[in-house]
Amino acid sequence: MAVLLIADVTNDGLGFDATAKAVTAARALGDVTVLVMGPRAAAEEAATIEGVAKVLLAEDAALGHRLAEPAADLVVALAPGFTHVVAPATADAKNILPRVAALLDVMVISDVTAIRDAETFERPIYAGNALQTVQSSDRIKVLTIRTAGFDAAPRGGSAPIEAAPGVSDPGLSQWVEDRVAKSGRPELTSARVVVSGGRGIGSKEGFQIVEKLADRLGAAVGASRAAVDAGYAPNDWQVGQTGKVVAPDLYVALGISGAIQHLAGMKDSKTIVAINKDPEAPIFQVADYGLVADLFEAVPALTEKL
C-alpha cells in the first residue's frame, strides 16, 4: 500500500499542522509520499515530519497559486503508483481532489474522520447529524481528511526529496490576486483556544470585544455565518458545516444561537463555553459552561478577570 499525500501549502510555506495531521491518518494506510506543490523550503519542512517516506517537490510556476487544473493533472500523472491519494480537507484540497478523482474515474471521499481499514472510511453527513461508514470498491481511493480528529505527526524525520515530473499548464484559468489578511493570532483550525462571535455582536466594531478576549486567551477568532454575512467578520473566520471545522481544547461562543450548521463546525471541541442573553438558545444544550448575560457587559468583565 502506498499513499500520495498532497501537502497543504499556503503563501507562507508549508501548512505544517494540517499536513502533519494528515500524515498521521495516512500512515494507517501505507508508506507516505508527500507531494509539495510550492517552494523548496516547504518540501524541506515536510521532509521533517515523522513517518514521511519521501517528498516529491513540484516547483513549477504553474502550480504556484494552486490552481485546480494543473495541480490535478500532476496528481493524476503520479496516481498510478499509489493505492490512495489523500490530503487534509482544506479549501485547496476540496478544489483539487474531486477533479483528480473524476479524471481517475473514481469517487472522492470528503472529510474523512476515521479510517477503519484501507477501503473503509467514516465521514459526517447532514452537517454532522449522522456519521456514515462507507466502503470503496475503487481502484485508487481519493480522500480528504478532516484533520481536527487526528494528532499531528511530530517532527524528527528526514525523508529524501525528489523532483516531481514537470507539468504543462492547460491555461484554463489564471490567478489574479490573493486577498489574505495577516494576523498575529494562531490559525483557526489548529488553535488550542477559539473565541467566536455571532450576530449578537451587532457590528464590526463590536468584534473588538471578541478579539480582546481572544488575545487574553491566546486564541484564534471565529465567527458564525450570520456574523460573516453581516460583514462583522471576514469569510475565513466562519466556523461550521460550510466553513471551518475546529476542535480546540476550549471554544467560547459569544452571541451565537447554536444553529446546527454552526455546531457542525465546533461540537467536537473539548470544552465549550457560551455567553448568550437568551436562556433558550440551543448553544446551551452543548455548552459545558454557560452564562446568560448581555455580552457587552459580560465579555469585557470576563476578559478583565481572566
Partner: peptide
C-alpha cells in the same frame, strides 16, 4: 462506488452548568 456500511448517530453532548455571574464562570473555568 461507495457501499454504505452503516449510518449512525454522532456521540451527543450534554448540557453543562449555567453560571450565575461572570465571577462564578471564571471560578468554574
Amino acid at each position: 462506488r461507495l457501499r454504505v456500511i452503516e449510518t449512525r448517530e454522532p456521540p451527543s453532548r450534554k448540557a453543562g452548568v449555567i453560571a450565575k455571574s461572570v465571577d462564578e464562570l471564571v471560578d468554574m473555568l
